[in-house]
Each structure stands twice: as structure tokens, then as C-alpha cells.
Design a protein around this nucleic acid. Structure first.
Length: 891
DNA sequence: CTAGGGTTAG
């Protein structure tokens, strides 16, 4: 009786002890309290009880003390039961000791202990977190073998694991086959898609969950927000923001941080700011997102101010520091950058690879490559980004050889990646060093990077800029996917190779593949339009710039000015110029050149002075433009004055192009001997362009004595441009020295040079018609020939006499006249007259300079047929009207 | 069992 009573009392006491210890255990907030409870458990002999040992293990893990967890477990084994094994595996996983957790799982199986459904979630979690795909699959098999495939928690863990491995197909399959799902299942899949940037899929699952009537929780929202951000789905993002308010989860810090982040991605600074200001609790991530967002919007000064504000109440972490270092680099604020670097070292973040990489970049952007190199050398571990960043730093500072050297060192240490090769190719491009380029091409092909889009784009660019358009096109043809940069590069390659028709075909092909042109595309197409005077396409591009909102970009405006002027519409050039809000030296130079081409020298002078008044400093190109403009309007004194001012006032050493312009200026105005004197007094060795300028002028003015002397100079120079040989041959032809003509023609052939055949174009009703010299094989040849005959008779009455020195073959006079008839611009003009309404102005394009006889001929035609005829030759525009030409014969 | 912020390039 007594013992029974005692027994009941003891039981009652044990119960009370048990429950109070249990309460104390779960409410322990810190290691100190926990150790106290642990001691009590030991003294009461409850430490190893199934209930308390498991709790202890978990509680230590919760307070991030895996060693104590393990020591509790260790005292139990080998007698530990499944519950205790589960606890230790979960504890180790929770504390990040994944391989240790997996080791224990394997040991548990070795001991023939049967895992239960509670074992697997943490084991799977450990595989996922450790990135151990193989073990993950093995564990998955165990799950199936044991018939746990339908367990909700295990299924959720598996979805998460495969998603982390990037195997979204498997994750999706498991998800689809789960007999029961909860919000965690949906969240795991959404987050898996989001983390792997499968934005559309993330949204698809999110909307499915919504349709299925699931209530989103903070996990759902923070997993789906990056997808809205990634797709720039502003409207939908705002809807989610509304939903967050409605669900009352706007106080969740991770949700708010997510909202903050997407508003920055949308470029909505004010909305981001509002989210941030309304946050009751902020953490380091909130501040980092804010600071980083300001950096993304290029508000670097403001981001540094925010950083200063942050440090008053928060301790910046590694990510704060790296964000701010990026800002320092982009601001080139070396001073502050050094300060932050120092702070980082003091905070013990120096060993972080990413942070060190950013520091290398920061110093490089600030131009201190020595400091970059020091940081690089001090790093214990380097990844490919470290190497790439330093290589790119050397490239930016122009130390290409150092970049190449570092690349060779890198190859001995680790595998270069596609970014490394892009950097190296840019070295080849900048140096136009194709030998190195080919070497790099081989290197990267061996590693399989020749299928990488960005690398291929860089290859196309490299070959094109090295002058090998055929290689560039070969790489392009072999590419499986293209992006907008591919097209822009290949279009630029065509421009570089002066193959306008190929360029236009590329533009069409690009449109066929439904690529939206961007600003770079426009800047690529405009020079093509300029070169072939494709005004219609040029106008289309102009319209496109409005659609893209890039019409106010300076570079676009500059290209438009050139395009309109080369297409013969000076007025539009001026209009574009006047509408530009910001104008740089290039803008003014484009306008000055436009006036120059159209023979409006006075306006060119005026513009030049206006440019100076606007406070811009002319560069060497601006001087070429103005001297050229003077030369084409016969403003000799003014041109010479600018040549002097360039040296005196702007300290620009004249280059060969400037000298060529001055020679042109003097000789066009008929001052041939002065030009020759000028050449002989030049400090630079005159090249073909210098002698050529004088020669063509002396031929035009009929001074064959000088022409002959100059020709000898040119022949002696022995260069590779066929144009000048043709010029010399023409002089000998005019002198009737046909043996010399034959000799020159032969030497062109021997050198393997090909002269550009004369060619003219005219556009009628959206179609371009091209005519070569002496062409007979076109549809309306008979009609054209008849019209030329009629015109010849009318002209003869007006006093026109053919200048036979421009017929360049050794034939009888009558035949010479016939040859002149066949000059391509005459064919084009006659064709134009036949196929347009009377009174319509004609616009002709010619690849070479107009010959003297054709110039005279066209003047007569303009008077006889009462038409305005605009001819663009290789140099400039000639506007023929009522028997005169706008060039005032200065062509 | 599920969530947020950082680096290099054409």
C-alpha cells in the first residue's frame, strides 16, 4: 500500500520534472541557458532518454552548435535509435555540415538501421546543399525502394533538390506525380524555376497555384518576384505588390526586399524608394538592395551617400562593400575606393574571392593597374573572374602585351572561359593582329568555345576589323544562333569592307529573323545609306530612331547629318542639326563637311566660327573638313588661314591628310606651281594622295607639262592604289603617248591590281539602275542611244565642243566622241530623262570623279531639257541647273 | 521540406 503510493508520487514527480525540463529546453534562447538545462538533464539522468536526447541534439543545432549536438549523439551510439539518428542528421545539415550528415546516413544504413520518412528530407537537403548530384540520385533510389515515393515532405525535398541541381525537368516530374501537394511543393518548384532564370515557367506555376486557389505565402511571393523582375513585367509586378498588401504580408522583410529589388529592375526609383521608406524593419539586405539599385541606375554618388547613411545604424557586410566598390570604380573615385578597400581588410573580408575581384576591377577602372596587380598577386585563391578582370584591366589601359602575357600564365593555372577569349579577341581587334587572332581562334576552338554566341560575335568583329571579311562571314555562316549584336557586328563588317549591297542584304535578313534593330543597328546602316545615297532607306532609319527613342542621341544625329548630306538633301541635314539638343565636335564637323560637299563654302566658314563661339575646340578632323570645304568653293585664302590657325592656335600637328587638302585647295584654284612649291616644302614625305591631288588638277586645267612631271613622281612611288595609275595613264593618253599608256596599263596588271570600273546609278520608282562605262546590254539601250544623239545635235547648236582629251583610248576622233557618249553618267542621265516626267529633278550617283567633258556636257543638258540634275561623284555634289554647276567648276 | 542582395565581355 505504502509502496504503491510512493510509486504514484514518484511518477507524479517525474512527470512534473519532465514537463518543466521540456519547457526549459524548448525556451532556451542562448547557449548559456541551454547548457544549464543540459546539466539539469544529466543530473536527473534524463540526458540519454529517447525524448530528451533528440531534443537536445536539435536544440544545439538550432543555436548553431553542431559540436555539442554531436557529442550528445556520440554518447548514445551505437545504441541510438532512428529518432536520434534523424535528429543528428537534421542537426548537421542545419549547421551546414552536409558531408558529415551524409556520412552518418551511410553509417546508419551500414548498421542495418531502417531510415523512416523523417530521415529523408534532411538527407536530401544535405545532398542538394552539398551539390552532390550522384548521392542525391542514390538517396532518391532508396526512397523509391522503401516505398516512400508518395510522402509529401520527401517529395517537396526532392523537388527542391533537383531544382538546385538545375534539373528542372526531373523536379517538375516529381512535382506532377505527387499525390498530395501543399504550398511548399508549389513554392519549391517556383523557386527552382526562378533560381535558374526560367522566368516564364516560374510564372506559369505561380499562376497555376493561384488558379488552384492556393493562398500565396511569403515564400511564394519572394520566389516569384525575381521572375517578374527578369521579364520586366511591370504591370504584373504591381499586381503582386497589391496582392502582398491585401494578404497582409507586406511586413515580411524578405517580401519587401524582393519588391524593392524588382522596382529597381524596372528602373522605378521612386517606387523602390517608397517600398524602402515604408519598411518598418530593415536589414542589411534591404540596404544592400537599395545601394546596389542606385548603382544599377548609375546614381553612383547617391549610392555612396546612402552607404554613409547606412553605416550610422548598420554594419555593412561583404555585399555592401562590394556594391560600393563597384560604384567607386565606375566613378573612378580612387580615394574613396582605397578607403573602402582598407575597411574591407580590417573587417576580415580580404579572403573573399568575389570581393577581391571587384577590388581588382575598381583599381583598374581608376587606372591604377599596379594596385590591381598587387591585389591579384596577394590572392590565395583565384577564379577565372580574377584573371579575366586583370586581363581586361590591362586592355583598358592599352597594355595589350601584358594582357596576352597574363593569358599565357592563366592557361597554366586554370581553364580560360568564354569571357577570357572575348577579352583576348578584343586585343587582336584593337591591334588588327590577325596572326594572334587565328592563334586565339584555334585555342578557343579546342575548348569548344567556338559555339558560344558572344565569342563568335567577337570572332566576326576581329576578322572584319583585320580586313578579312570572308573569314568573318565564314564564322557568321557557321553560327547556329544570332542575337542583335551578331547582326550589328556583321553589318558593321560589311561597312568596313565597303560592301554596301551585302550590308543591305544583311539588314533584310535580320528583319526576316524578326530582330528589332537597336541604336547600334541604326549607326551601322546609316553609313551604308550614306555611301549609296539610299535616301529612302535612310529616312526609314530616321523614323526608326524615333520609334526607339534614340533620336536625341548625339551619335545618331551625327550619322543622320552625314546621311542626308550624302543623299543630296542638305536641307534635311541642317534641320537635323538644328534639332539636336547636344552637339559635339563631330556634329559640327558633319555639318561643315555637308556644306563643303554641296559647295557652300561660306556657310561652312560661318559654321566653323559658330562652333568656336559655342565653346567647342576643333580637332584635326574638323580642320580637314573646313579646308576641304574651302577647297571645293575656291576659298583659297581662307583655307590657308585655317591651316595656319590649326598649328598656331590649336597646336595640332598637320597630318598627311591636311597637307593633301591644302595641295588640293591650291591646285583646284589653278595655282599649280604654288601647290608644287608647297609639296616640296612639306616636312612629311609626300605620298600618292598628295601628288594625285595636284595631278588631277593639272590635268583638269590642261597644264600637261606639270601633269607629265607629276606623273613621273607617282610612277616612282610604286604604290598599290590603282586609281592613281589610271590618273597617270589618262595624262599620257591626253598627251597622245600611247606607248606609255600601255606600259602603265601593263604594270597595273602585273601588280595584280584591278581598277574600279566607272559606274553610275539612278533610282527611279524605288528601283536602282546601274550603268557601267560603255554599257550596251540594258533594255532601253536603243532609246538611250537615240536620245544621246539628239542631245548632241542640240548641244552643238548651243556651242558645245567635245573635249577629246578625256577619251582615253588610241582611236580615231569620231570613235573618241563615241567613247565619251558611253560614259556611265551620260547613260544614267539619258535613262533618267526617258523614264521620268518632264521637269522632275534627277539624282545620279557616280563612283569616280566626273570627267571634265561630262561636267560640261551635263551643264548643257540641264539647260536644254530644263531639269535640275544632282550628281554625287566620289568627292562632292554637283547641282546642274540651267547651264551652270553649283561647284563653280571647283571640282 | 520552400524565399531576398555582389564580380569580368562583344
Amino acid at each position: 500500500m505504502k509502496t504503491a503510493k510512493l510509486g504514484i508520487l514518484r511518477e507524479r514527480r517525474d512527470e512534473l520534472l519532465h514537463s518543466s525540463l521540456s519547457k526549459a529546453l524548448s525556451s532556451a534562447q542562448n547557449p548559456k541557458q541551454l547548457h544549464k538545462v543540459h546539466t539539469l538533464l544529466i543530473t536527473s539522468g534524463l540526458e540519454r532518454s529517447a525524448f530528451f536526447s533528440g531534443k537536445l541534439i536539435s536544440k544545439y543545432a538550432q543555436l548553431k552548435d553542431p559540436i555539442s549536438s554531436f557529442s550528445v549523439f556520440h554518447q548514445l551510439s551505437p545504441a541510438a535509435n532512428v529518432y536520434q539518428w534523424n535528429s543528428i542528421i537534421r542537426a548537421l545539415t542545419h549547421c551546414g555540415l552536409f558531408s558529415k550528415a551524409l556520412e552518418l546516413y551511410a553509417k546508419m544504413r551500414d548498421m542495418k538501421l531502417k531510415p523512416d520518412t523523417y530521415t529523408f528530407p534532411s538527407v536530401i537537403n544535405a545532398c542538394a546543399a552539398a551539390g552532390d548530384f550522384q548521392t542525391g540520385c542514390v538517396v532518391h533510389n532508396h526512397v523509391l525502394e522503401m516505398g516512400f515515393g508518395f510522402d509529401l515532405y520527401i517529395g517537396n525535398a526532392l523537388v527542391d533538390m533537383y531544382a538546385r541541381f538545375g534539373d528542372l525537368i526531373k523536379a517538375r516530374n516529381i512535382f506532377e506525380e505527387m499525390p498530395h501537394r501543399d504550398i511548399v511543393s508549389w513554392n519549391s518548384l517556383i523557386s527552382g524555376y526562378s533560381a535558374n532564370a526560367y522566368w516564364e515557367e516560374a510564372l506559369e506555376i505561380y499562376y497555376q497555384a493561384r488558379i488552384a486557389g492556393l493562398k500565396p505565402d511569403p515564400f511564394t511571393i519572394s520566389s516569384v518576384l525575381p521572375a517578374f523582375g527578369g521579364l520586366l513585367a511591370i504591370k504584373e509586378g504591381e499586381v503582386v505588390h497589391g496582392l502582398v498588401e491585401k494578404l497582409g504580408i507586406n511586413a515580411d522583410i524578405i517580401v519587401s526586399n524582393g519588391l524593392l529589388s524588382i522596382y529597381f529592375k524596372f528602373g522605378r526609383l521612386m517606387d523602390a524608394r517608397r517600398v524602402f521608406n515604408q519598411m518598418v524593419v530593415k536589414d542589411t539586405v534591404s540596404w544592400n538592395t537599395l545601394i546596389c539599385g542606385y548603382c544599377q541606375m548609375e546614381l553612383f554618388e547617391e549610392s555612396i551617400e546612402l552607404f554613409m547613411e547606412m553605416v550610422r545604424s548598420f554594419r555593412p557586410d561583404l555585399l555592401t562593400i562590394t556594391s560600393i566598390l563597384r560604384a567607386c570604380g565606375l566613378l573612378q573615385d580612387l580615394e574613396f575606393g582605397k578607403f573602402v578597400h582598407d575597411y574591407m581588410i580590417r573587417s576580415g573580408f580580404e579572403c573573399d574571392v568575389t570581393a577581391s575581384n571587384i577590388i581588382i576591377d575598381m583599381y583598374a577602372k581608376c587606372g591604377d593597374l599596379v594596385a590591381s596587380g598587387k591585389v591579384f598577386d596577394r590572392m590565395k585563391y583565384r577564379d577565372s573572374v580574377s584573371w579575366n578582370t586583370l586581363i581586361n584591366g590591362y586592355i583598358q589601359s592599352g597594355s595589350y602585351d601584358k594582357g596576352v602575357k597574363l593569358f599565357k600564365k592563366m592557361k597554366m593555372d586554370l581553364k580560360p572561359d568564354c569571357i577570357t577569349f572575348v577579352a583576348l579577341l578584343s586585343i587582336c581587334t584593337r591591334l588588327a593582329d590577325m596572326e594572334l587572332g587565328k592563334e586565339i581562334h584555334c585555342d578557343l576552338a579546342k575548348l569548344g568555345f567556338d559555339s558560344d554566341l558572344v565569342v563568335c560575335n567577337a570572332l566576326v568583329d576581329m576578322y572584319a576589323k583585320c580586313g578579312k571579311i570572308d573569314y568573318a562571314l565564314m564564322v557568321f555562316e557557321n553560327m547556329k544562333v544570332h542575337d542583335i549584336v551578331t547582326w550589328n557586328t556583321v553589318i558593321a563588317a560589311c561597312v568596313q569592307a565597303e560592301d554596301c549591297s551585302l550590308g543591305l542584304r544583311m539588314v533584310n535578313q535580320m528583319k526576316n529573323e524578326e530582330f528589332m534593330p537597336d541604336m547600334a543597328t541604326m549607326l551601322g546602316i546609316l553609313p551604308i545609306c550614306s555611301a549609296i545615297a539610299a535616301k529612302r532607306q535612310g529616312k526609314e532609319v530616321h523614323a526608326c530612331t524615333f520609334k526607339l527613342g534614340s533620336e536625341s542621341a548625339v551619335s545618331v544625329g551625327n550619322a543622320l547629318i552625314e546621311m542626308y548630306s550624302k543623299c543630296g538633301n542638305l536641307m534635311y541635314s541642317i534641320r537635323v542639326f538644328e534639332h539636336m539638343k547636344t552637339k559635339d565636335v563631330v556634329t559640327w564637323t558633319a555639318l561643315i563637311s555637308a556644306y563643303g560637299m554641296h559647295g557652300e563654302g561660306k556657310n561652312a566658314l560661318k559654321s566653323f566660327e559658330e562652333m568656336l563661339a559655342a565653346g567647342l575646340i576643333p580637332d584635326h578632323v574638323a580642320f580637314i573638313a573646313i579646308i576641304y570645304a574651302c577647297s571645293h568653293s575656291g576659298l583659297v585664302e581662307e583655307g590657308l588661314a585655317y591651316f595656319d590657325r590649326m598649328k598656331k592656335d590649336y597646336n595640332i600637328e598637320p597630318s598627311i591628310e591636311h597637307y593633301a587638302c591644302v595641295v588640293d585647295l591650291l591646285s583646284r584654284s589653278g595655282q599649280l606651281s604654288k601647290a608644287e612649291e608647297f609639296i616640296n616644302s612639306m616636312p612629311l614625305k609626300p605620298d600618292a594622295s598628295i601628288w594625285g591631288a595636284l595631278l588631277s588638277a593639272s590635268r583638269a586645267s590642261g597644264d600637261l607639262k606639270i601633269a607629265e612631271r607629276i606623273s613621273q613622281h607617282i610612277v616612282q612611288l610604286d604604290f598599290d592604289d590603282p586609281g592613281y595609275y589610271v590618273l597617270v595613264a589618262n595624262v599620257y593618253a591626253a598627251l597622245g603617248r600611247w606607248d606609255d599608256v600601255r606600259m602603265i596599263r601593263k604594270s597595273i596588271k602585273v601588280k595584280g591590281l584591278k581598277k574600279d570600273p566607272g559606274c553610275s546609278w539612278i533610282e527611279i520608282k524605288k528601283r536602282a539602275y546601274a550603268f557601267g562605262t560603255g554599257d550596251k546590254f540594258f533594255k532601253q539601250y536603243e532609246k538611250v542611244n537615240k536620245l544621246l544623239g539628239t542631245l548632241a545635235n542640240l548641244m552643238a547648236k548651243e556651242g558645245y565642243v567635245a573635249d577629246l582629251q578625256y577619251a582615253l583610248h588610241d582611236v580615231e576622233e569620231d570613235e573618241k566622241r563615241g567613247l565619251l557618249y558611253g560614259h556611265s553618267e551620260r547613260l544614267a542621265i539619258a535613262f533618267g530623262l526617258l523614264n521620268t516626267e518632264p521637269g522632275t529633278p534627277l539624282q545620279i550617283l557616280k563612283n569616280l570623279r566626273v570627267c571634265g567633258d561630262c561636267h560640261t556636257w551635263t551643264k548643257y543638258v540641264s539647260k536644254i531639257v530644263k531639269r535640275e540634275i544632282l550628281v554625287r561623284d566620289a568627292n562632292r555634289f554637283h547641282k546642274f541647273q540651267d547651264g551652270t554647276c553649283s561647284c563653280g567648276d571647283h571640282w
